[in-house]
Simulated assay, not measured.
Amino acid sequence: MKKTLAGFIAVMVLFLGFVGTSTVEADTKGDVDVRHDTLSDIGTEFRDEVRAVMDHYKEFNNANKQLKEAGASYQNALTADTGKANTYTTMEQQSVMVGVYTFDATYAALFLRKKELADVLSVRKSLAEKIGFGMPLTPKMKEIVANPDKIADFDEWSKALDEVSMEMVVNHVTTDKRLDMLVDAFFGAVVEGMYVVTESIAQAGYPQPMLDLMNQQHDRIDFMLKLLNVFRGDKAFENEVEFDERFDVLGDIHNLLLVRQFTQREVDGIRQIIAPLRQDILDGTVF
């Protein structure tokens, strides 16, 4: 778990920005620290590769819709406690939790739980402001943030979130540190998404229509693995995005997602990995 044992797509997408702290020359791969307050040459290359990965994964929100269509109901107990938001004090904790709360907002929007959506968006906004990098408000997202109770359907939320995501990567990832924190936020959203899906399946008693949802979860994990792989080979950036730790645990989940027909066994195997990982995130011991 990250540094202090401390850290999942819906997505997704997000997000927010972050204040840089230190400067180091960082054009050479492998043996220097990441330059935080500018976007280095290699950071620019990585940002563009992250955008390319995102372009290939645009169906997360459709996968989320299938959760409802398969018979799941909204379970408030499956979401992160917004009352604990002020206990996350480090930039890393806050950026990962922004990802967690972003998925929770998607979950609330899916079931048109407007009060819960308003609550999560308010907390998420507060965390982003503490980090110093607010969500770029496209016109659609601005309307939703200002009046969550007026959201008409999940597709409206999905479109707004997609626009924010691309705006974020194209115009707001302006430092290496922001690139690192964007990956943190995606990680938080992916973990939360996988947790909500697998726990929903378990609570429903593993019915076949919901077991079939697991076929779409492969893309969530594959997305995050490909995102991490963007930074493979640059030791400074690998350290920033916790490459080894995250790649290992997500790789274990990926292996469990390779079966053709999902049963309770595979879902429970993933739950045994994702539930404690998610709890560590909520406890502030970020991965």
Rank of each mutant, 00 (worst) to 15 (best):
Y101I: 04
K142R: 12
G30R: 09
K65Q: 14
K125L: 02
E69P: 01
Y206G: 05
A85F: 07
T90K: 03
A63H: 14
M166S: 11
G83R: 08
H218N: 07
G71Q: 02
V267D: 05
G7L: 13
L137G: 06
F15E: 06
T198W: 03
G83I: 14
V170K: 14
V241Y: 00
P209Q: 10
D153M: 07
P276S: 07
F237P: 01
V13E: 06
E69D: 15
R246A: 08
K58E: 14
E49H: 08
A77L: 07
Q75H: 15
S200F: 01
N171P: 08
I281D: 00
V13A: 12
A146D: 07
T106F: 07
V170H: 10
Y57L: 10
R271F: 07
A26V: 02
H218T: 10
V197Y: 03
E167I: 03
A80H: 05
A26S: 15
E245K: 13
Q94G: 00
I201H: 01
I42Y: 07
K68Y: 05
D280L: 13
V196W: 05
A189L: 10
M12N: 11
D41W: 07
T38E: 15
G71I: 04
V196T: 15
A160C: 12
I131K: 00
K68R: 13
M1I: 05
A275M: 10
A128C: 09
Y88N: 00
D180G: 08
G43F: 01
K226A: 09
A63G: 12
T102E: 11
R260T: 11
N215Q: 13
Q93P: 02
V96L: 02
D219S: 14
N61R: 06
R232M: 09
H56D: 15
L16I: 11
G43N: 01
E242I: 13
V197G: 04
N239L: 11
I274N: 04
L78G: 12
K226V: 03
G284I: 01
T90N: 01
Q94S: 01
R178Q: 14
Y88I: 01
I253K: 03
L117M: 06
Q75P: 04
G30V: 11
T82G: 12
V96I: 09
V34P: 01
K29P: 14
I131C: 11
T87R: 08
H218A: 10
A105S: 15
